[in-house]
Computed example of a mutant assay.
Amino acid sequence: MREETVTLRREWQAFWLAVGFVSRIPMLVKVDYSQRLMNQSSVYFPLVGLLLGGLYVGLYSLLELWWTPLIAVLLVVGFHLWITGAFHEDGLADSADGLGGGYTVARRLEIMKDSRIGTYGTAALVMVLLLKVALLTTVSPVWLGLLLAPAVSRLTPLCLMRWLPYVTDPDTSKSKPVAEGFSRQRLMVAAVGVAVLALAFQVALAALISIALVALVWGTMLKKSLGGYTGDTLGASVVLSELVFLLLLAV
């Protein structure tokens, strides 16, 4: 088999592995799983976000025929939580509990591994979901926020993975295979893809600010509080980037 064919086959599998990692969408191809392939799949996270955004737009367009925009957005957000398994929202809640309730790095990491949700996590989750619904009903057109926010926001964790060290128990972390070996070249490919998308829809400034601001502020906080990032904090960065991006679109 030619090298180009092998490379294309590996990238095709990496894409579907990314789909399966961040959503409940069934993988339509057989994937020869390896840690290397999991590393490679990270570059497709923004593309998977765009795929999810397309589903949200299609569902919203149907729901809007029968209900008000507010009800339609609420149902779409509910669908989002189901199709993604609330993957990133869970990371946000765990991060809020750990950073808010721990006084040492070890204690913060211990709290973040606890499957139970605490006061900080509950408050953060409720506020984030309320704000997201409010912003989506304010953005005009609504479909723009639904389509682009999931794609733009998924570049932020790739930046954090490249610039910060990984700090957690490697034997219990789902994100370890993603975190290890993420190359600068694949980050640039993902960044160029998001830039082209943002330019095409004339939201490049909002995309740049949301990614850079969250990566800088959240990344600095993680460096100070944990010494690096965990899988939960990567998920939180997606949610935070979505909110900042939607805030800028709603201005």
Rank of each mutant, 00 (worst) to 15 (best):
V142L: 03
W143L: 04
L125I: 01
M127D: 12
L147V: 04
T137I: 13
Y120L: 13
L135A: 07
L146Y: 05
L144R: 06
V126K: 02
S140V: 14
A123D: 05
W143H: 09
W143A: 15
W143I: 05
L147D: 12
L148G: 09
G121Y: 03
V126M: 02
T122S: 14
V128E: 11
Y120P: 13
L146C: 09
A149V: 02
L144T: 13
A149Q: 03
T138W: 12
T119K: 01
P141R: 04
A123R: 00
L129W: 04
Y120G: 15
V139D: 12
L136A: 11
L146H: 11
G118D: 08
L125V: 05
L125R: 00
A134I: 04
G145Q: 07
W143Y: 12
A123Q: 02
I117A: 12
G145C: 04
V128H: 05
K132P: 09
S140Y: 14
G118Y: 02
G121W: 02
L131M: 03
V142Y: 02
A123G: 08
L144Y: 08
L146V: 07
T137L: 06
A134Y: 07
L131H: 03
L135G: 04
V133W: 04
G118T: 03
L146P: 12
I117F: 08
G118Q: 04
T122G: 15
A123W: 01
L130H: 02
V126W: 02
T138N: 12
G145A: 11
Y120A: 15
V126D: 13
A124W: 02
L129R: 00
L125F: 07
V133M: 06
M127Q: 09
A134W: 03
A134K: 01
A134E: 12
G145N: 11
L136Q: 11
K132N: 03
V126Y: 01
G118V: 06
W143S: 14
P141T: 10
V142R: 00
L129C: 07
T137Y: 05
V133P: 10
L147M: 11
L130N: 10
L148C: 11
L148M: 10
L125D: 10
L136S: 06
G118E: 04
L148I: 10
T137V: 15
T137S: 11
V133Q: 00
A123Y: 07
T138H: 11
W143F: 09
L146R: 03
A123P: 08
K132Y: 06
A123C: 14
W143D: 12
L129D: 02
L129Y: 01
L144V: 08
V133C: 09
T122C: 14
G121C: 07
G118M: 01
L131F: 00
V142C: 13
A134D: 12
A149W: 05
P141H: 13
W143Q: 15
L125A: 13
P141V: 13
G121D: 11
G145M: 05
T122E: 09
L130I: 00
T119P: 06
L135Q: 02
Y120H: 13
G118I: 02
L131C: 07
L136I: 06
K132R: 01
P141W: 07
A149C: 10
Y120N: 15
S140D: 15
L135V: 10
V126L: 13
K132I: 00
